[in-house]
Amino acid sequence: MSDGVTTAATRAEYCVVACAEVWRDAGEVLASPMGTVPAIGARLARLTFSPELLLTDGEALLLGDVPASGSGAVVEGWLPYRQHLALAATGRRHIMMGASQIDRHGNQNISCIGDWSRPSRQLLGVRGAPVNTLNHPTSYWVPRHSRRVFVERVDMVSGVGYDRAAAAGPAATRYHRIPEVVSDLGVFDFATPDRTMRLRSVHPGVTVGQVTEATGFALTVPDEVPCTREPTPDELRLIREVLDPEGLREREVPA
């Protein structure tokens, strides 16, 4: 065993494992991670507890093996953008998107900040957030947990939250599900009676107070908040030696 494996897990490595957990028991579906830490997490899940996952090269190819970030691979299939969009409607996908803003109901915004008709800051546009959230499980990754991201009300609902889906009727709720939100501070879900955000675990070294302080809305906090689980020695080895030897994860989540 190398020296790297014997050192304690970094915050970024807890985040990788928490992201990987999103795809546990997902079955034979496409894992679509957005961002460095979720990408490493999806590959870790495939190499360990979710071997049936489909992964892409980030463009049009399905990967038949699990290479390190950016390296070549066996190709097992073809998935150009048009099929990607059609696949979303089949439901055989679990995406982990980013969020410029997210609220307590799970509404997410990547479109713009401020009034849509003349935004103070134009971002990407809604992209595929509406189709994703209405058709298959959609989780979120927030590398810097703050009140600017975790807001009372998002400026433009790109990804649909539980309240908005319910208001839009049965065709909207039928396949709508937001399993998890992972940030650099902890893991969150919507396992509350009114489907609002709940703190599920804090990463080791993070206090519950830190999380509520950095959250711009009232978060449901259980009496006992567990710590995010430890990576296994094998997982740490895979992250450090196989999946991300360059340490790109530490740039997205600094120690």
Binding site: R82, S111, V126, A129, P130, L134, N135, V157
Partner: peptide
């Protein structure tokens, strides 16, 4: 939404006035 865009182009190519999609419901689109 990207899928609304795809099926909107498809509708135009197929000379249809619209295509039904789930995408967009509940969103600010």
């Amino acid at each position: 939404d990207e899928a609304m865009f795809l099926w909107g182009l498809t509708a135009a190519a197929q000379r249809l006035p619209f295509m039904p999609v789930r995408a967009g419901l509940g969103s600010d689109v």
